[in-house]
Amino acid sequence: MNPVNYLYLASLLFTIGAVGVLVRRNAIVLFMCVELMLNACNLALVTFSRLHGNLDGQIIAFFTMVVAAAEVVVGLAIIVSVFRTRHSASVDDTNLMKL
């Protein structure tokens, strides 16, 4: 199977994630969309690794996964504590810092 198809899939997933970030309000969904974009990038990196025949992309993908895991821990903790205080997971409601 032509590896370029994986790239198509990766860009499709990235686009879905990006559109989700732009149009959704729920913080959890937003978060999932961000994860989707990260993983689309991972897929693209692994594909490039395969195409070029070296391991660089795969190593970067591991780094991405580690960073994403850390980000999930921090991000979910923030979302949970925001939900506890404001009883809403909508990102539009967290605008206290706005002038």
Binding site: A18, L22, V23, V91, K98, L99
Partner: peptide, 17 residues
């Protein structure tokens, strides 16, 4: 210009994109 800073995450995300 201040109006660009509207406090909506999606608009910041859009500018990032």
């Amino acid at each position: 210009v201040r109006k660009v800073q509207n406090g909506y995450v999606r608009s910041y995300a859009l500018s990032m994109f």
